[in-house]
């Protein structure tokens, strides 16, 4: 092989197409919980790095990932878990969820519904744009955070790169929510997704960019509300009604 190419490959700057197929079985990827999406993302979300999500505010962008992230932390706990209960407690107390300058107030009930321990949630409300980036970088590289969420419409190439490196260093996810109009390309991200809502339940996920992998067609994903009352109605009542009908028929 060409020595230059070999060197580039060693530095992981060049990926071969063959690699992408193997990596679909890569255990380090975080399973999204949606089969089609997993396939398109060659196994799931990257284990760490910066993820760009371009969508309108309120499309279910966070719900798409929360379950997967929650599962990832649970899995890590299981891996670390040995027999004693105290250790389990300690491990589950571990990593922080940091929300930096959210556009509105984060709802505690929503997080509780997703089984997130509020002790691990931190909200940061810096005054300036620079402070937002600084705190995001600090959190990402500290190694103490599971995920860092930022809401920004404009990030420069260099700033994205810094955050990407920081989150790789701290082994965490840095989610960048962006609801601006213009498309961004060529940013050094681990993953970039565009979300649009098709129906009340269905989200269309377009993969703008991912490390390792081909360009894929948009994937449709069903992201329901985590709605307990709703579930009660849909799952329990309809079969009951069906049963009654059957009974009625039998009686007659």
């Amino acid at each position: 092989m060409n020595p230059i190419l070999h060197e580039l490959q060693n530095k992981q700057w060049v990926w071969t197409a063959a690699q992408s197929r193997c990596s679909s079985a890569d255990s380090s990827r975080v399973k999204t919980g949606f089969k089609h999406l997993d396939k398109a993302l060659s196994g799931g979300f990257p284990a760490a790095g910066m993820v760009h999500i371009h969508s309108h505010l309120g499309c279910g962008e966070l719900r798409l990932m929360l379950a997967a992230l929650q599962a990832q932390t649970m899995r890590q706990i299981k891996e670390n878990e040995t027999q004693t209960a105290s250790e389990k407690n300690a491990a589950s107390n571990d990593k922080l969820w940091v929300f930096i300058a959210p556009p509105f107030v984060i709802n505690a009930e929503f997080l509780l519904a997703h089984n997130i321990n509020l002790n691990q949630v931190i909200l940061i409300q810096p005054d300036t744009y620079e402070e937002v980036l600084w705190s995001a970088e600090q959190c990402a590289k500290s190694g103490a955070c599971a995920s860092v969420f930022i809401w920004q419409n404009t990030l420069k190439h260099q700033q994205v790169r810094r955050l990407e490196l920081a989150s790789l260093q701290g082994q965490c996810h840095c989610f960048w929510f962006d609801n601006s109009q213009q498309q961004k390309s060529n940013l050094p991200l681990s993953l970039s997704l565009s979300l649009t809502r098709e129906d009340s339940d269905i989200l269309q996920v377009k993969i703008n960019k991912q490390k390792v992998g081909w360009a894929k067609a948009p994937v449709k994903v069903k992201v329901p509300f985590v709605c307990r009352t709703g579930k009660l109605f849909t799952q329990k009542q309809t079969p009951l009604a069906g049963k009654n009908i059957v009974h009625l028929h039998k009686l007659t």
């Binding site: 571990d94 922080l96 949630v121 909200l123 940061i124 103490a144 955070c145």
Partner: peptide
């Protein structure tokens, strides 16, 4: 038992509080 993330988290919080002011760093309660 208690992995170093606890220490990392605490020092992260001190750093953030030092720079931004501790009133900018909030927790959430239900």
């Amino acid at each position: 038992a208690r992995k170093s993330t606890h220490i990392a988290a605490m020092s992260l919080l001190s750093r953030l509080g030092g720079k931004l002011g501790s009133d900018k760093i909030r927790g959430l309660r239900f």
